[in-house]
């Protein structure tokens, strides 16, 4: 999931009888499955929560360029290089698209980026893990994109129109990435001894961080309940995590790789796998900034932003000059 633990400013989910007439009409539209569009009235909490969620999602796409970009110059064949470049371009494009969707809610991209750089907004914990071998590029496509899709497919039905339509398009492209990631894993798992070792090592390192992408259990969370009432969250974190494990374990078996969980077992009664929870202490440490790559990721983004200031200033200055000469000509 690219958005984790999004807060809603809610302390209790109110029922229809406790709402103002305007809010009630709004909630009823959502209950009927209607889409809310940017120019429609919406409660402040709904707007703010969506900005946080879409913003976090957009930031994740942008920061997500870094671990993958780490291997573009070292991709092992020209075709793999082209595919990876296209994928990273895709992700930056998704970021742009999502920032635009957030902007329809009355926040600017610059504000969101400043909040990210100031540490006041988050991006997915997964991108604080390093890509150490070429197999990691396969694992990111297979597991990380796989987990993202798991979350984003239900969000295609989310109540906010631009977000829902963004998810429909993004899911289509992401499933492409996942196919390509799995293809890399197939080659690696079926390759020589070093390649097989890289493949297993990638699974070992990315398995639990991928499970963490869904966030800790939110069965009891009021934020989660509110988001679900607003249909900006469709499933609980546990439901999605279970689905992800059930989908991924057979794929790992097909590759001949071992999922690093000794308690992993098919449970005939519930028709799904039993598995170990990730280490949630590690997760909270990563969110606090103590993941293996938090510092590098933020430094890289802040440096890009600061180094690029003269470029942005120049483009603005040039646009102003143009505008001035156009006005003068009229």
């Amino acid at each position: 999931m690219y958005a984790q633990m999004v807060k809603t400013d809610t302390t209790k989910v109110r029922d229809l009888s406790e709402m103002s007439a305007q809010e009630r009409a709004f909630q009823e539209r959502i209950d009927r499955g209607e889409k809310i569009e940017p120019t429609d009235w919406m409660p402040d909490g709904y707007r703010k929560t969506l900005i946080r969620q879409i913003g976090q999602h957009a930031h994740s796409e942008i920061v997500g360029q870094l671990p993958e970009g780490n291997w573009i110059t070292r991709a092992p064949t020209l075709e793999r290089k082209a595919i990876l470049l296209a994928k990273v371009q895709d992700e930056a494009g998704h970021g742009l698209y999502l920032y635009c969707a957030a902007e329809t809610l009355g926040v600017s991209r610059d504000e969101l980026i400043e909040l990210l750089h100031a540490g006041k907004m988050k991006y997915s914990s997964i991108f604080n893990y390093p890509t150490l071998t070429w197999a990691d590029i396969g694992a990111v496509g297979w597991l990380v994109d796989g987990a993202a899709i798991m979350n984003q497919v239900p969000l295609q039905r989310t109540s906010f129109g631009p977000y829902s339509r963004a998810m429909i398009r993004i899911c289509k492209e992401e499933s492409f990435h996942q196919r390509q990631g799995y293809d890399i894993m197939m080659k690696m798992a079926g390759g020589n001894e070093a390649q097989r070792r890289m493949a297993q090592d990638a699974l070992d390192r990315f398995w639990y961080p991928s499970l963490m992408m869904f966030g800790p259990s939110d069965k009891e969370s009021v934020h989660s309940a509110q988001s679900m009432a607003w249909k900006i969250k469709i499933n609980t974190n546990d439901e999605l995590r279970q689905k992800f494990v059930d989908q991924t374990v057979p794929q790992a078996q097909y590759l001949g790789l071992t999922v690093p969980d000794e308690h992993l077992k098919w449970n005939e009664d519930k028709g799904s796998y039993d598995f170990s929870e990730p280490d949630w202490n590690e997760f909270f440490e990563v969110l606090k900034g103590n993941g293996p790559c938090n510092r590098e990721r933020m430094e890289a983004r802040v440096k890009a932003w600061e180094d690029g200031e003269w470029v942005r200033d120049a483009l603005m200055a040039h646009a102003d000059k143009r505008e001035a000469s156009r006005t003068a000509a009229e």
């Binding site: 371009q89 494009g93 742009l96």
Partner: peptide, 15 residues
């Protein structure tokens, strides 16, 4: 997001 496309925004419906 792909080479064949450009990104636009609608000023009427904001899409």
């Amino acid at each position: 997001s792909t080479p064949c496309k450009a990104a636009y925004r609608c000023r009427s419906c904001l899409e």
